[in-house]
């Protein structure tokens, strides 16, 4: 009996193996596993074999049936697949939702806010339509200063001014609270500049202000070094260059290592190795006194930088207008 089972096993395997179509496979299945198939036949002959051989033979027969069922199913699947052909072309594109994106200026503003917030700064804001007092007078801008000119600054017919920098927020914050003050103020500002590749009559700035007892120019430099290294990378150096701003004294322009040539000198930095990022300085005592702070007791620093400039450097954008014209071919690059 055992021999017989082994023989049928070999024969069945060969037949399933050689089956060339679903029909042949089905025929093989009937021949061996069908109700009148070879295995059923062997089971029928079981009572005829000696009782001591029966357990072994029964076990072998069961094992063979299980094996053949798997083989038969595999064979059927093999041919069924070939026949039912519509397979998935997985290289077809997926069904996409619309992909939105934040504007690069928003992305950069958030990065800047994030860095300053980690350094302990709060975020403040103020109106874009300002009074002459907040935009100029309180910031110690002399009456003759050219920035007050109608050729430089946009005014409303009622004498209000479109803020020319985010600095008025400094005044509003200091009027509202006592030192220590550590804030940044991002926002839109306006200048009477004709639009061209590098100028826009509206752009974005971030203002920084820190007033407390014992704040020094070294604190200013340290903060800006930490900020620019985080934003542009550890290799970034910061240089202070003397300048004049009405609301700070001493004042400094802030340069950083040129991002394009790493300070070696190139077209972008006009061979200087440095690029200008913004203004800064120690808050003028007149400004502090004007908001009721004791300028003998408290000192502070202020800084400002242009967000467009940062975005243009970070992404290699060469025309400021492409930031504002809503061209989706531009916007989709920031997905």
């Amino acid at each position: 009996m055992i021999e017989k089972i082994a023989q049928i096993r070999l024969q069945a395997f060969r037949e399933f193996e050689e089956a060339k179509s679903l029909q042949e496979a089905e025929a093989a299945r009937n021949k061996y596993l069908g109700r009148k198939g070879a295995i059923a036949d062997l089971f029928r002959h079981m009572p005829g074999i000696p009782p001591e051989e029966r357990p072994e033979a029964g076990e072998a027969l069961n094992r063979l049936r299980a094996e053949l069922e798997v083989v038969a199913e595999t064979a059927r699947e093999k041919f069924a697949q070939k026949k039912e052909a519509p397979q998935i072309d997985t290289t077809l594109p997926g069904r996409m939702p619309h992909l939105g994106a934040l504007h690069p200026l928003t992305i950069v503003t958030r990065q800047i806010i994030d860095i300053f917030r980690q350094m302990g700064f709060a975020v403040a804001s103020g109106p874009e339509i300002e009074t002459v007092y907040y935009n100029f007078d309180a910031l110690n801008t002399p009456p003759w200063h050219p920035s007050r000119d109608e050729s430089a600054t946009l005014y409303l017919p009622n004498g209000f001014v479109l803020r020319t920098e985010t600095s008025p927020v400094q005044i509003r914050v200091m009027e509202a609270m006592q030192p220590p003050v550590r804030i940044i103020a991002p926002g839109r500002v306006y200048r009477r500049d004709r639009p061209d590749a590098t100028h826009s009559p509206m752009f974005h700035q971030v203002e920084g202000l820190y007033v407390d007892e014992g704040v020094t120019m070294a604190d200013l430099k340290g903060t800006l070094v930490a900020f620019y290294r985080t934003l542009f990378g550890e290799q970034t150096a910061v240089r202070f260059r003397p300048h004049f701003f009405p609301f700070t004294e001493p004042s400094a322009e802030v340069d950083i290592t040129c991002l394009f040539c790493a300070g070696k000198g190139c077209r972008i930095c006009k061979e200087a190795g440095w690029i200008e990022m913004g203004g800064s300085g120690m808050v003028d005592p007149n400004v502090l006194d004007g908001v009721g702070y004791d300028s003998e007791k408290y000192t502070g620093w202020a800084c400002g930088l242009g967000i467009e400039r940062v975005a243009m450097f970070l992404y290699g954008i060469d025309n400021i207008r492409s930031l504002y014209d809503g061209d989706v071919r531009f916007l989709r690059q920031f997905i």
Binding site: G100, H103, T106, E128, R188, D325, G326, L331, R332
Partner: peptide
Amino acid sequence: GFLEVQSVS
């Protein structure tokens, strides 16, 4: 799915 625009105000 919206793209953010910034325009001159």
